[in-house]
């Protein structure tokens, strides 16, 4: 059975080609989805990729959240469809209320592009089951507004329920609370993270192929469902 993974393009989306390539590397079929079209084309999962949707004007993800396609994504996520938000996609999912918290300007005030070690803190989500718990993976981080922030009670809840999926290893690159790099929804189906697993699927063009595990995890999830 062919697994169909939708990849959304908003005006200003940049990493849609990379997300689609990552899905193909995992032997899924990548299906382009357009911001203005609410039709999810019968996909099994959705990736909201990185970039600067609508120029990140107003606030990162704040405008994209209202695109027609997002209404469908919110509805589908409510029914348990796996959704992955990467970087700007993570920001959009937070704005859309699918994930808790918000992303603010990096503590160093500069855009940061670097290869970043992450620790896998939850390997039971739809997007992280291929990793060993506690494994350390090396993937690119590239963002100017990647500082994860949430209220103390939200952070306590996330930590308590094991919903932090990835945590930065070593120096905190952007001032995220508790070094949080990625979180998941209560049901473990929606995952958002600032680093870019889709840029680490082949050691030729990325630092490693450590990121491929996320897309292979999804394949297991859909095929075994």
């Amino acid at each position: 059975m062919s697994v169909r993974v939708g990849v959304i393009t908003f005006p200003g989306t940049l990493d849609d080609v990379d997300a689609a390539r990552a899905a193909r590397y995992a032997e899924a079929e990548a299906v382009p989805l357009w911001h203005g079209d609410p039709d999810l084309k019968g996909v099994d999962a959705v990736i909201v990729p990185g970039g600067f949707s609508y120029g990140d004007y107003l606030r990162c993800g704040a405008i994209a959240r209202f695109a027609p396609v997002m209404d469908s994504v919110i509805e589908a996520a409510g029914k348990g469809m796996p959704v992955l938000g990467i970087c700007n996609g993570f920001q959009i999912l937070c704005e859309a209320g699918l994930l808790p918290g918000a992303l603010i300007r990096n503590s160093g005030l500069h855009f940061v592009c670097k290869d970043q070690w992450l620790k896998v803190e939850n390997n039971t989500t739809a997007w992280s089951s291929r990793y060993e718990l506690g494994a350390e993976i090396l993937v690119p981080l590239k963002s100017g507004e990647g500082g994860y922030q949430a209220t103390q009670s939200t952070v306590d809840e996330l930590e308590g329920e094991g919903r932090v999926v990835f945590r930065y290893v070593g120096d905190n690159p952007n001032g995220s609370r508790d070094g949080i790099a990625g979180v998941t929804s209560a049901n473990g189906r929606v995952v958002g993270l600032m680093p870019h697993p889709e840029h680490a699927i082949d050691a030729l063009t990325g630092p490693t192929d450590d990121g491929l595990g996320m897309f292979l995890s999804l394949m297991d999830e859909v095929v075994n469902a």
Binding site: D18, H110, F111, C113, K142, E198, L204, T205
Partner: peptide, 14 residues
């Protein structure tokens, strides 16, 4: 300097 530039986007950077 270069850490402020995205070198990965589009997945073709070798």
């Amino acid at each position: 300097v270069t850490q402020q530039y995205d070198r990965y986007v589009r997945g073709g950077t070798v």
